[in-house]
Each structure stands twice: as structure tokens, then as C-alpha cells.
């Protein structure tokens, strides 16, 4: 050891490094907190941008006209901004998707949770996760170039772009989500309850129907609501396969535009900032955001409020 360093120096040095350590120790929580705050800033950013531009939009278009208008003609003179055509497109595609996702997803959950052996479950679940991991753009391609042509051989009046095909494909995409959330709910039902039903002579189906599903109903319903929220916010499938017709119709064989597809179309067209068209983007996005937020909060409320504790 160097002769010039005596014990006092060493203690001094040690203290200094401890001081630095102490300062750092105090700073860490503050640094981490400011990082954590960024997620809140994101939410504030979303709310602020949507609100500010939506207010600007409603200065030019009366709010009542927007929500009750059946005509959407964003370009040219006499532009009209009624959101109803977009709402019907969104709601219809969601309903079609739910017709696929809810029954198939729930039955899949029942099979995986109640019927399948451990080995089968361990093989099937990762495969279903693959389905959930495929990018939506791929489903859009699939709907447009494969499902629609097939559907057109059965339904001659079907337009090349229509709301039916993306609705169905969207439903398939959402199956794994419904299945895995519902399965989680079902497998958290204690097996004593099943065994009780078996002991009374119930078959597996009767046990599932009368015991397991009622006991896990809050989680199952919550999974449906989340699936609806997901379908409302889904963008690429409907953008590609449903075209951009802004007709106010309930005919699912026709082209329709959803709220999400409208946002894609308008931003892709480089709407000049400050125009009514540009602001309409945010009004539609605000509507979309509120819809999905309500669904998400509803799902949280259902699974909290109606959960049966065992």
C-alpha cells in the first residue's frame, strides 16, 4: 500500500464516497417517479390533444349535427359532418365480430378449462396465442384477398369491400382474447365446487353450465366487454377490407367506414391543419376514445363488483 495514504485519509475518502452514495440514494426515487409520471403525461396528452381540437371542431360544426347527422361528406363545398355513418359501421362490424368471438371463444375456454387434459391444454394454448400474435395488417390482407372472394361465391350481392368480411375476420382475431380471459376466470373456480356437483351426479356439461359458469360469470362478461372494446378500436382490418363508403346504411353486404378507418383515410390524405376536415379527425377520435374507455371501465367494474370470492 502507498505510504502516503494514512488511515485518516482513508476514512475521509470513504465518507466522501458514502456521501455521493447517499445523494444518489435520495435521487433514485425521484428519478424513478418522474419516469413513472410519463405514463400519466401520456394520458393527459391524449386527453388534451383530443379535447382541444374537438372543441375547435364543434365551433364550426354544431355538436348536435355531428351526433345526429346521417350524412358524412367531408370534402368539397357544403361539407357535412354527421358521425352516424361511421357509428353504424363501427357498431355493425363489432356486432359481427362478437357473433364469432363470443360463442367460439367461450366454448374454447370451456374446453380448455373443463374438458381438456393437461397435455392437450399445454399444446393448444400456445397455438392459440400465435393466433393472437399475428399483426392485424395480416388479418386485413386475409379478409380482403381471401375471405371476401369466398363469401362472394355464396352471397352474390356482396360488394368487393364490405363490412361482413372484416367483421368475421376481426371476430376470429379476438377469439384467443375471449378464450384466455374466460379460461382464467373459469380455472379460478375452486375444484371443490366441481367435485360437489359431480358427487350429486351431474355430468361435466351440467357442472360447467350450472356451477362453473355462474361462479365465474363476472370474469366471462368482463372478457366479452373487453373484446367489444378491442373490436371498436381495431383499425387495419376494416380499413383494408371495408372500403371508404360513407353511406348511412345497415346493409352488411355493402362497403362501410368505421371511425378508425375514417381517421386513417383523412390522415393519409394530408388534411391541411386548421381545416374543418382536420378537426373532424379529432372529434371522431374523441368519440372512439370515449367509447373504448367506457367499455374498459365497465369491464373493470364488472369484474370487481360482481366477483365471487371463494
Amino acid at each position: 500500500m502507498d505510504k502516503n495514504i494514512n488511515v485518516r485519509d482513508m476514512i475521509h475518502k470513504n465518507k466522501q464516497s458514502m456521501n455521493i452514495g447517499r445523494v444518489w440514494e435520495k435521487m433514485v426515487p425521484k428519478v424513478l417517479l418522474s419516469i413513472a409520471i410519463i405514463s400519466i403525461l401520456t394520458t393527459i396528452g391524449i386527453l388534451a390533444t383530443l379535447t382541444v381540437e374537438t372543441i375547435a371542431f364543434f365551433r364550426e360544426v354544431p355538436i348536435l349535427d355531428f351526433f345526429t347527422g346521417t350524412k358524412l361528406k367531408p370534402l368539397g363545398a357544403n361539407a357535412e359532418f354527421g358521425v352516424l355513418p361511421l357509428l353504424t359501421g363501427t357498431i355493425l362490424s363489432t356486432i359481427i365480430a362478437m357473433f364469432v368471438a363470443i360463442p367460439v371463444g367461450l366454448m374454447t375456454a370451456v374446453y380448455l378449462s373443463e374438458y381438456a387434459s393437461d397435455k392437450v391444454r399445454r399444446t393448444l394454448k400456445p397455438l392459440l396465442e400465435v393466433l393472437a400474435g399475428i399483426p392485424t395488417i395480416v388479418y386485413g390482407f386475409f379478409a380482403y384477398t381471401f375471405v371476401t372472394p369466398i363469401l362472394r361465391t355464396f352471397i352474390p350481392g356482396l360488394d368487393p369491400t364490405n363490412i361482413l368480411s372484416p367483421g368475421l375476420v376481426m371476430g376470429i382475431m379476438i377469439i384467443p382474447m375471449v378464450a384466455s380471459l374466460s379460461e382464467d376466470a373459469m380455472s379460478s373456480v375452486p375444484s371443490e365446487m366441481r367435485q360437489g356437483a359431480f358427487a350429486l351426479g351431474a355430468t361435466r356439461l351440467e357442472t360447467t353450465w350450472r356451477v362453473v359458469i355462474p361462479a365465474s360469470i363476472s370474469g366471462i362478461i368482463a372478457s366479452f366487454v373487453l373484446a367489444i372494446s378491442r373490436a371498436i378500436g381495431e383499425t387495419m382490418i376494416v380499413t383494408i377490407a371495408s372500403g371508404s363508403s360513407k353511406n348511412f346504411t345497415f346493409d352488411i353486404t355493402q362497403s362501410m367506414q368505421t371511425m378508425t378507418a375514417y381517421i386513417v383515410e383523412v390522415t393519409g390524405g394530408e388534411a391541411p391543419a386548421g381545416s374543418t376536415l382536420y378537426y373532424s379527425l379529432y372529434a371522431v377520435a374523441m368519440t372512439l376514445f370515449v367509447f373504448t374507455l367506457i367499455m374498459n371501465l365497465l369491464a373493470q367494474y364488472i369484474s370487481r363488483r360482481f366477483r365471487e370470492e371463494y
Binding site: 390533444t49 371498436i232 378500436g233 386513417v264
Partner: peptide
């Protein structure tokens, strides 16, 4: 709990809304 709730709600926001946030900000 605010941060926690906020994160789970952010996870449910449609991706296209994030696109608008990115466009604006």
C-alpha cells in the same frame, strides 16, 4: 394507484389514438 390504474387504462386505448397523439405532439 393513480399510476397503476392509468397504465391499465392506457393499455386499452386504441392504437390509432396513439397515432393521433404522435401526430399532434
Amino acid at each position: 394507484s393513480l399510476i397503476q390504474t392509468n397504465i391499465s387504462n392506457l393499455a386499452g386505448v386504441p392504437s390509432i389514438v396513439f397515432g393521433l397523439l404522435g401526430l399532434t405532439v
